[in-house]
Every structure is written in structure tokens, then in C-alpha cells.
Design a binder for these strands. Structure first.
Lengths: 210, 210
DNA sequence: GATATTTTTAACTATTTGGTTAATATATGT
DNA sequence: ACATATATTAACCAAATAGTTAAAAATATC
């Protein structure tokens, strides 16, 4: 193994370990010793290869949020109608955790902390995602298909619902039988939940047929 | 001031300080020294009056989540139709941060951590809230007004959107002009956002007029 | 006022934390 | 093979942390 490969490999191991631990316990709760242990490197290697705790966190965030807008944009290209585009947009947002399993947790940590460790580059990534939705809605408005609405709000509804559904699974599991009336409710799979949310949002945005 | 008053006063001060700091930096990030300083008490008083860090956190959580279901239930009592009830439900959920300004942040910390410090009593409070919605939807279904849907999903959409809109304000503020196309979007007040989300959810759930 | 009880405090404690350092090991170039 | 550059490490460090303690102070009781 060459130096370059060794370097890239250990960087990858550190980032992967950091991603898992930061997602699990947040920035303040994460321990550099623990990240080093999980990455199977000496702790000093983290400082040598990447930098201090804050720098490591920013690297991980950048790793996660980059490329999302581009991915969705590519998939939307092949769609014709505004509704089709919106559906692709929503499908991808609502199942983003399949591609980025840790993303919901990171979004939560960041929002909880007021975006304290949220790098500008990730904010740009997010802004691109919302700009995508803006275009779709605008096109839909012009064709009389969608109501005119600030894209930020449906985006928040979709992302909020997605993140909350995914992140609340442990609590739901733990307190499954906590309330008699709720125990009888049919259990939905994550895919079902995503599909239902998609339909609700489409219905909410659509104008009645002329 | 009697002993009882002094005790109650110092407990209140500790809980208020703890609420603020836990909301701001989460459980792991909070420092008992800091909480004591903000509460203007000696740190040992926290352990004497309330208990250790975990116990303090649970007390604060219980303080916040208790009574929400009851409050909404009371307001719903005076409504007639399922739609009126649903509107009251949504209005209260979407403006809950006015009554409990720290609640969005606590929800985020708890979800981010997988509910690790979420006491059962607070889960029961939440379950009661969702059971309320279940009743409203059930009544609406029976009267042919609403679609039949698991109440958990619209609840997640409402709460998710509310929490995300409120909690993302610092980030939005900070990165206001990050993307040219988005800079021109009309800025909504929190009340506007809540009203729009309410309308979208009502529209999504309503069945067409017969 | 004397005594008992409770509250409060400053100092303390053992452990942990993020980060550093100098020595050692390995890789590269000649 | 040797010199130089780079990578890796065990040990170290100062500061911080949650929690504790025993004495002092305050309050309650008779």
C-alpha cells in the first residue's frame, strides 16, 4: 500500500467513524478517543490527517450534504410535467435517508444547536435543493397546476416529516404500547409513510382541475 | 420568605436556568457549573434540591411537555365540526412555541439522540396529543369530511414543519442571501408560516365536497 | 437562649477531555 | 546504504467535568 493509499484509507476510516459517532451523540457528546477507537487509528492521527474536533465535524457535514441537489436535479431532467417533477423531488427528499442514513440525525443536531457548526458550503447545498423546488412550483403555477406558494414551506413540511418519522422510530418502538387507543393503529413501513406524505403534499399543492 | 418559599424559589430558578441551557446546548453540552451560575445558586444546591444531571434534565422535560394535550383538548371542546376541531388542533400545534419557546429545541435534541433522555411520562403526554388527533380524524371520516389516515403522519408533518421552521430561523438569517434566486422570495412571519401550513394540511386531509 | 435540624458553601476529588510532543517507524530519493 | 521526508505512536498535559464533603451558616423548635 502506497503512502497515498494509506493516507486516503485512514482519512476515510476516520471520516466514517466520525460520521457514525457525531450522528449518534452530536458534536458535544462525541469523544475523539472514541472516534479514534472506532476508526482503528491512534487519536493523534486524527489531528495529523484532518484537524481538531470542529474541523473534523465540518468535514463530515460537507461529506453528507454535498451532491444532493445535483442528484435530484439529474433525476428531474427526464420528467415532463410539473407534477412529475414534484413527485421525483418529493420521492428523493422523503427517501434521502436510504442514501444518507445519517442525514436525519445530522439535520436534527444542527437545527437543535441553531446551526452552530453548519458550514456555509452545506447551506449552499441546501439552498440549491430549495431553488430546485422553486423552479418546479413556478412552472406548475404558470401551467395552472399548482398553487402559488413559497417553496420553503412545502420543503420544510417534507423534510420535517421525513426527519421526524425516521428519527422518532426508536421512541415509537420503545413506547409502542403506551396508549391504548394508539396501539391499534396500523403500522406503516418507512416506504409507506413516504408515499403517504408524498400524496398529501401533492394534493395540498394542486389546483383543482379546470 | 419562608423555607418553603425559598425552596420553591430556588427550585424554580434552577429549572428555568436548566431549561435555557439544555435547550441551547443539549444534554451533553450543558455544564452544571453554567446552570448553577445562571440560576445564581451554588452548584451543590442543584444536587441537593433536584439531583444529578440526568434527573435535572428529566425534570425539565417533564416541565415542558406536561399539559399540552389537556390544553388542546380544552380548546377543542367548544368546537362543533371535525374541521373546526382540526383547525384548533393545528393552530395550537403550529404555535406551541409561543407558549413553550424551548419546546422545538428540546424536541430536536431528543430526536437527535434517539430519545435517550426522554422520560416515559413525556411520551405519554405526546401519545395523548396524537390520540386527540386520532379522534378528530375518526369523526371526520365518519362524517365523510376527511380521508382515512393514520393520525401519526399529519401530526409529524405539522410538528416537523413547525419545529423546522422555528429552529431554522438562525440559519436562514445567517445565510439569507446565499442563493440569488431564493433572495427574492417573500419573507413570511412565523404566524404566516403557521397559517399556510394549516391550510395545506387541511386541504390535504379534506375529502371533496359530496 | 440552647439545641436540633436543615440549608448552604468553598474546597475538594477522581476522572475525562481535546490536544500536544518527542521519539520511533516507515517511505522515498539518491 | 544512507540521508531525508513523512507517518505513527505512547506518553504526556492543562483544563474541565460531574459529583462529593465536611464545616459553617441559617433556620426551626422547645
Amino acid at each position: 500500500m502506497s503512502i497515498k493509499d494509506k493516507r486516503d484509507n485512514s482519512i476515510r476510516k476516520i471520516l466514517d467513524a466520525a460520521m457514525e459517532i457525531f450522528a449518534s451523540v452530536g458534536f458535544a457528546g462525541a469523544r475523539m478517543d472514541e472516534i479514534a477507537r472506532l476508526a482503528s487509528v491512534n487519536k493523534a492521527m486524527i489531528y495529523y490527517r484532518i484537524g481538531n474536533k470542529k474541523t473534523l465535524y465540518a468535514e463530515v457535514i460537507h461529506d453528507i450534504f454535498g451532491g444532493i441537489a445535483e442528484m435530484i436535479s439529474e433525476k428531474i431532467k427526464s420528467q415532463q410535467t410539473p407534477e412529475e417533477k414534484l413527485r421525483i423531488y418529493l420521492k428523493n427528499i422523503l427517501s434521502i435517508n436510504k442514501v444518507h442514513p445519517y442525514l436525519p440525525r445530522f439535520m436534527l443536531w444542527e437545527l437543535a444547536s441553531g446551526g452552530e457548526n453548519f458550514p456555509e458550503i452545506a447551506a449552499q447545498d441546501l439552498a440549491q435543493v430549495i431553488a430546485l423546488l422553486m423552479k418546479i412550483i413556478k412552472e406548475g403555477v404558470e401551467k395552472g397546476v399548482f398553487m402559488n406558494i413559497n417553496p420553503f414551506i412545502p420543503h420544510m413540511m417534507a423534510v420535517g416529516a421525513m426527519v421526524f418519522c425516521r428519527a422518532s422510530e426508536p421512541i415509537r418502538e420503545k413506547y409502542q404500547t403506551i396508549h391504548q387507543d394508539l396501539s391499534d393503529l396500523e403500522h406503516h413501513s418507512p416506504g409507506d409513510e413516504a408515499a403517504i406524505i408524498e400524496e398529501l403534499i401533492i394534493k395540498a399543492l394542486k389546483q383543482p382541475e379546470p
